[in-house]
Design a protein around this nucleic acid. Structure first.
Length: 516
RNA sequence: GGCAGUGUAGCUCAGCUGGUUAGAGCGUGGCACUCAUAAUGCCAAGGUCGGUGGUUCGAGCCCACUCACUGCUACCA
């Protein structure tokens, strides 16, 4: 296994503002990226925006501004969302950048040189709104107009010259690749869908358009721009410096993980690998699809008025609570639901009551009874051995769960230790030991603090700010916070001075005045 | 229609190659404690494991049929 880890999100289409789905993908990717960094990997974490295409042009027209201005404005919003959510991406790519034009044109040339690009004609029922073609049987006539059956949008007959990619040629190579790399597509249910899709046969893919100019010009055919597939997917190698083989970041290609939504699985697991094969480039190691979020089971839509703005949500609940909820509550890879009540429940139960209060109750005793210093460890009993075993096994278990991106399971394991430490604390009752056996009280407080150290280290990828604060409260040195330090060799040193305890997570209390 | 998958306590889900009283978290009810962010701990209630019929000494876990729901089914960021 390489020590390098390149993880990407899908790039977002900025013809609107970022929504919760974008935020969810970014948070998950960020947790994985942080996890790998803490585990000693050299990480390249990429996100960005996909800014070309007809819909951008139309949105700009509607707003009466140049399309580049629209792209600049909205790309900035996506960037701002990343900052608000604490995303630790190393780069933010925009497909309108010069480096991307160079990259797309080069991969195009290589595919062409391999004999996989040819000029032909495309025709069909096209929906501008959906940016998609439909077959005759996928449309219906209503009055004098024709509409898409599945989306209800108007379609028009379009016939145009277009360059095609010989996707059909790659059916067998792709099937062979899937068979040889069983982890390439995850979760399994998505892999099954892709394999069955490809098994049914592939037709060549239209990869250029002449109907608009807002895109990357096709080399040698400036009246064509590349259609979404080549343009958008290529961002991943652009960011590595392609086509400059000597670029600093080329060492990160092939990517370790493309994290995507299940709606774009085909682009990433069929088209993209085929393009790369054609261009003679190595294929990414894994593509993993997360699920969709629904608000109480209802899809988010503007007409239902349940579209939530991720930045506002993160401010309302706190960034870490926001991140924690979605990573803990939803089985990663499956669809999930959320609601205000569910978020508040998690926030208060897991973060404020379990972890926050555990830190508070133990550290305030340390503060009052141990001169604000890490207490002495006067000897471990049988009572503690189970806890230490659990704590020292935490990181290895997390690594195993990370192999199939079971983020929710990692968090469940960490919080099991939180709960068990609370049980330990209550059972030992250090407030009673204070009078009967002060030395034992110190040990109990020491053990609790040491458990908090493990918990803080393990929780960093998911709740970075609060975990850092917890480790600060324990006076864990900045340089002793990686997974390698989740080990008895780096245990808290008795006598170390601690800062005054302060709350980790405030309880969420409903705003009182709700009267209109 | 075809292919794939799901259906286990009020809710969200675990249940390894079939084997003693089916588990967790949340929620609910009772009790305890007071170190703590009215936090925490303990105990309890609650499930004929979608349905029917099989295989087996024995089945949430295997087979058949059946009902319900979900995804995919050629270019929907």
């Amino acid at each position: 296994m390489s020590n390098r880890f390149f993880i990407s999100t899908a790039i977002s289409y900025p013809n609107g503002v970022p929504h919760l789905g974008h935020a969810y993908e970014l948070i998950a990717a960020d947790a994985i990226a942080r996890f790998m960094r803490l585990d000693g990997r050299e990480v390249f974490f990429l996100t960005g925006t996909d800014e070309h295409g007809l819909k951008m042009v139309q949105t700009a027209e509607r707003e009466g501004i140049p399309v580049r201005e629209l792209a600049d404005r909205n790309a900035a919003r996506f960037r701002a969302m990343g900052q608000a959510l604490g995303a630790s991406n190393d780069d933010f790519i925009r497909t309108t950048e010069a480096r991307h034009y160079a990259s797309c044109q080069e991969i195009w040339r290589r595919m062409e040189a391999n004999g996989d690009i040819y000029l032909s004609k495309y025709s069909g029922w096209y929906s501008v709104r959906d940016e998609a073609f439909y077959g005759e049987d996928e449309t219906r006539v209503e009055g004098d107009k024709r509409f898409s059956i599945s989306t209800g949008t108007p379609v028009e007959w379009v016939e145009e010259e277009s360059y095609f990619f010989r996707l059909s040629k790659y059916q067998q190579p792709l099937l062979d690749w899937y068979a040889a790399h069983p982890d390439f597509i995850g979760p399994d249910t998505r892999k099954n869908e892709v394999v069955s899709f490809v098994s049914r046969g592939l037709t060549d893919l239209s990869v250029s358009r002449k109907t608009f100019t807002w895109g990357v010009p096709v080399p040698g055919a400036p009246d064509h721009v590349m259609y979404v597939w080549v343009d958008a997917l290529t961002n991943y190698i652009t960011a590595c410096g392609f086509p400059d083989e000597g670029a600093e970041r080329m060492k990160f290609w092939p990517a370790s993980l493309h994290l995507i939504g299940k709606d774009i699985v085909r682009f990433h697991t069929v088209y993209w690998p085929a393009f790369l094969m054609s261009a003679g480039l190595p294929l990414p190691e894994r593509v993993f699809c997360h699920g969709f979020l629904t608000n109480r089971g209802e899809k988010m839509s503007k007409s239902l008025g349940n579209v939530l703005e991720p930045i506002a949500m993160s401010e309302q609940y706190g960034v870490d609570a926001f991140r924690y909820f979605f990573l803990r509550e939803i089985s990663f890879g499956q669809d999930g639901t959320y609601s205000h009540e569910a978020i508040v429940g998690r926030l208060n139960a897991d973060l404020a009551n379990d972890l926050g209060n555990l830190a508070q109750r133990s550290l305030s005793m340390v503060n009052k009874n141990c001169e604000g210093r890490v207490p002495a460890n006067n000897g471990i009993h049988g009572d503690e051995i189970g806890l230490f075993d659990q704590a020292s096994g935490l990181i290895n278990a997390a690594r195993q769960n990370m192999e199939n991106f079971a983020l929710h399971t990692i968090l469940a394991d960490i919080w099991r230790l939180v709960a068990d430490t609370n049980r330990y604390f209550a059972a030992q009752a250090p407030w009673a030991l204070k009078k009967t056996d002060p030395a034992r009280m110190e040990t109990v407080l020491y053990v609790t603090a040491e458990m908090l150290r493990y918990i803080g280290i393990a929780a960093q990828p998911f709740i970075p700010q609060a975990a850092a604060k917890l480790l600060d409260l324990l006076a864990v040195p900045e340089g002793e916070r990686t997974f390698a330090h989740a080990d008895g060799k780096f245990a808290l040193k008795s006598g170390t001075e601690l800062p005054a305890p302060s709350a980790l997570f405030p309880r969420y209390v409903e705003p009182e005045a709700d009267k209109a």
